[in-house]
């Protein structure tokens, strides 16, 4: 199961906040693709995953990042 979250045009930390909100609503195992063009997203999305114990799968194309809910 996968889903896309469109955060294009949002400045950090808004994409990370949206990611935290949405991932919590999804079942464990779901892959969430976050679309974000703020330059800080490339850094802050993996950092959030590390702090929150979620799995960062890597970039999925330009301005696109994949996260799997693992807990």
């Amino acid at each position: 199961m996968s889903e896309t979250l469109d955060c294009l045009g949002q400045r950090c930390p808004l994409p990370v906040i949206a990611l935290a909100r949405r991932l919590a609503e999804l079942p464990v195992g779901t892959v969430l693709r976050v679309l974000a063009d703020d330059p800080a997203a490339a850094n802050d999305i993996p950092a959030w995953c590390r702090l929150r114990g979620q799995e960062y799968l890597g970039p999925a194309g330009p301005d696109s990042y994949e996260v799997r809910r693992v807990s």
Binding site: R11, C12, P13, V16, D38, P39, A40, A42, N43, D44, P46, A47, W48, R50, L51
Partner: peptide
């Protein structure tokens, strides 16, 4: 070192290189 405080709107390259949270 957050991007919103930089004229370039880019996060600090130091925080990026460390892979740590750059906002807040």
């Amino acid at each position: 070192g957050s991007s919103c405080t930089a004229a370039t709107l880019r996060p600090s390259h130091v925080l990026e290189a460390m892979g740590v949270l750059s906002h807040g």
